[in-house]
């Protein structure tokens, strides 16, 4: 499903080139979930962005659902994001000008895979059925994140990428949102790669990997 092989990435800064990922490899099978933990600045978000095709690798290869990212141009990567990947961010990043219904259906419609039944199911499952005509700023953080999860799943992507999806939520709503997400990911048959710094949440996924100074370790406990 997802193959990451020896990926390197560095960013130019005022102090020169800073290496963020120094040869990272991992694999994720279909339907599997993987938690990526690490300190701030360990490069876990960068890895997520690279997998999503939001940024390009300096070296190494990534392939998603059989498609090698390094062979894709900007347009190809945009298509990949649209068709294969669902993104959930800590900041929710809903589209403020669209209401909840439109936000939920946005990516699915963008990908041309809008499935009304599935959407309705998602809205109900996420407890959003009564909120479809509201605008993002009228929702609580937990509600917004549920919209974001729904949006990511609506197109039935092969891979869900989540970056601290509950980082902006309190523990109770975070747990609830996490439960919903895991359940729906499983139901959709998608793989999940989730970045988190919470050991507790990581424990709820199938596998976990720890990223330190741009390298992975399989050590379960720090």
């Amino acid at each position: 499903m997802l193959h990451v092989n020896d990926v390197r990435k560095s960013y130019p800064t005022a102090e020169g080139l800073v290496s963020v990922l120094a040869g990272v490899s991992l694999d994720l099978d279909a339907g599997q979930s993987l938690a990526l933990t690490g300190e701030s600045g360990s490069g876990k978000s960068t890895l997520l962005h690279l997998v999503a095709g939001l940024d390009a690798v300096d070296g190494g290869t990534i392939s998603v659902a059989g498609t090698a990212l390094e062979g894709l141009d900007d347009k190809g990567r945009a298509e990949l994001r649209r068709d294969r990947i669902g993104l959930v961010f800590q900041q929710f990043n809903l589209i403020p000008s669209l209401d909840v219904g439109a936000n939920l259906a946005f990516q699915a419609r963008l990908a041309g895979r809008h499935d009304r039944g599935w959407s309705t199911h998602l809205a109900e499952a996420l407890g959003l059925a009564g909120l479809l005509n509201r605008y993002p700023e009228q929702l609580s953080g937990g509600q917004q994140q549920r919209v974001a999860i729904g949006r990511a799943l609506a197109a039935r992507p092969a891979l869900i990428l989540a970056d601290e999806p509950t980082g902006n939520l309190d523990e109770a709503s975070g747990d609830a949102v996490m439960g919903l997400m895991l359940g729906l990911v499983a139901k959709a048959g998608a793989s999940l790669l989730m970045v988190t710094h919470s050991e507790r949440l990581a424990a709820r996924l199938d596998r976990r990997l720890h990223l330190r100074a741009g390298r992975l370790s399989d050590r379960v406990q720090p």
């Binding site: 945009a78 994001r81 990043n93 589209i95 990516q107 963008l110």
Partner: peptide, 16 residues
């Protein structure tokens, strides 16, 4: 930028 970035993330090119 915060309004455009999610749309970009969801599969639109910058040129688009």
């Amino acid at each position: 930028l915060p309004q455009l970035a999610p749309v970009w993330a969801m599969g639109l090119t910058q040129a688009g």
